[in-house]
Nucleic acid binder design. Structure first.
Length: 162
DNA sequence: GCCAACGTTGGC
DNA sequence: GCCAACGTTGGC
């Protein structure tokens, strides 16, 4: 069986709603990344993301947006249960268990960076980070792919090795 | 709070 | 299938 190389990702969350500190405190430090209601991200979950991949945890809509840590994808994509829960903010009455519209993956805390890599720092390095989706104008996707060389550079900026 | 950018919805 | 209107994202 061939060992598959991990892919790398960047996943955004508003820290007021769910932060890397929240993830660290979860049982088994694991959490279903629910609430994604965007077809492009749904398709990435379904077609590209695999258990064993690694992801940056990005805090958005906060005083200092940036990458605050790293996590591991610990499941393949499966239906997001919140879409079937009428009490959930993420309820989608047009989705059925027989034909679920929205997927999620489980993520596990790896580490919080002592030195977060802020958006401003990413911008300072944009020559080397050309093509990093989160730097591109108008990219609002909550999940974006990260190239291996960009992953490496960003972890170096954070002072860690992953 | 503003607003640019983008996604989704729905009338036609 | 077009496209205007509307909603959301997210930096500032």
């Amino acid at each position: 069986m061939a060992t598959q190389k991990p892919s790398y990702w960047l996943m955004k969350s508003e820290p007021d709603a769910f932060s890397i500190d929240d993830l660290e405190k979860r049982p088994k430090q694991t959490e279903p990344w629910n609430g994604v209601r965007n077809y492009q991200v749904r398709n990435m979950f379904r077609d590209q993301m695999k258990a064993g991949d690694l992801a940056f945890f990005y805090h958005s809509s906060c005083p200092e947006p940036g990458i605050y840590g790293a996590m591991k994808i610990v499941s393949n994509a499966y239906p997001d249960p919140t879409q079937f829960d009428p009490k959930s903010d993420y309820y989608d009455g047009k989705s059925t268990p027989e034909d679920p519209r929205w997927l999620l993956v489980d993520v596990q805390f790896l580490q919080k960076f002592e030195q977060p890599v802020l958006l401003s720092t990413l911008r300072e390095n944009e020559a080397k980070l050309e093509g990093l989706r989160v730097l591109e104008k108008g990219t609002r996707l909550s999940v974006t792919p990260v190239k291996a060389e960009h992953w490496k550079l960003i972890t170096r900026l954070a002072g860690v090795k992953l």
